[in-house]
Design a protein around this nucleic acid. Sequence first.
DNA 1: ATAATATAGTTGACAAAATCAACCAAACAA
DNA 2: TTGTTTGGTTGATTTTGTCAACTATATTAT
Lengths: 144, 144
Amino acid sequence: MHDNSISDTVFAFVHSYRLAMRTGLNASELGLNYMHVKCLTFIESNKACAANDIVNFFARDKAQIARLVKDMITNAWVIKTDNPEDRRSQLLSLTDEGKRLASLIAETQSNVHQQMQKNLTDQELEDFKRITNTIVNNLNDLNS
Amino acid sequence: MHDNSISDTVFAFVHSYRLAMRTGLNASELGLNYMHVKCLTFIESNKACAANDIVNFFARDKAQIARLVKDMITNAWVIKTDNPEDRRSQLLSLTDEGKRLASLIAETQSNVHQQMQKNLTDQELEDFKRITNTIVNNLNDLNS
DNA sequence: ATAATATAGTTGACAAAATCAACCAAACAA
DNA sequence: TTGTTTGGTTGATTTTGTCAACTATATTAT
């Protein structure tokens, strides 16, 4: 691994992170996949969001999100209620089971984060976030 | 994004990076996908590697890599030659066209990396790689 | 108010990517 | 020698992502 190690390093990170989350959550047993996790977390932190908010936030195809939502509804993790503001859309919220899952996700995430931070000082963590954010901002300049 | 956790930061990084590479490369026009780019780069920097090296390095399913390699061979980016050390495996190397692609990738990558490194000192880049590697090792401890 | 256009969401068809299991042949270890 | 491991291939399937068409409602311009 020579000069391109920044991206290699980060991709290795993402791979390991996903794996850790998946095994930590026992995701396959729960029938959870990556986008489920993302969506449940998003719905939890955005009370009264619509499917379209998810589409925009994650920049995904709306067909994909529609099916994901349908799936989460049949799993009884999420319910739809009419949106009084706009009769084309419905608001999504978590059922009790959905909330239970969301807190399981949060807990797992916190364990994984704990593990990630081993052997690192507070200063290093601080540096890491700051530097990564700088890099992301640099890239976004390029992409916009 | 609320607590701006480490993982959010890193996912944002990956998203921006992929986008920058894809548009920079005009990847879809060239028929290149994400794993093609990864593999071509890997083969270029690891003279005389086998499919299995790719499998191990990227921790992917060997069926996936086998098909990817087959694909790159039919695209005439890569050729296989017998491995004198082990008659089960064959060594992969780039054709001229493969080399052309690899250098196009390298150039794009270098532009993107240049952009990423703006506003960062050498020391910060050093820190970034070191810290990220520590985190990856931590996660791998968890996964193994 | 009407017509044209834009938006939220659903569905069908399909393509691309990833995964699993079975298998072969060569290599290695007992 | 025999049993086990390893590198690689293939078939079958699942998962994930994408495109286009369509309905219903909302919005904008006339």
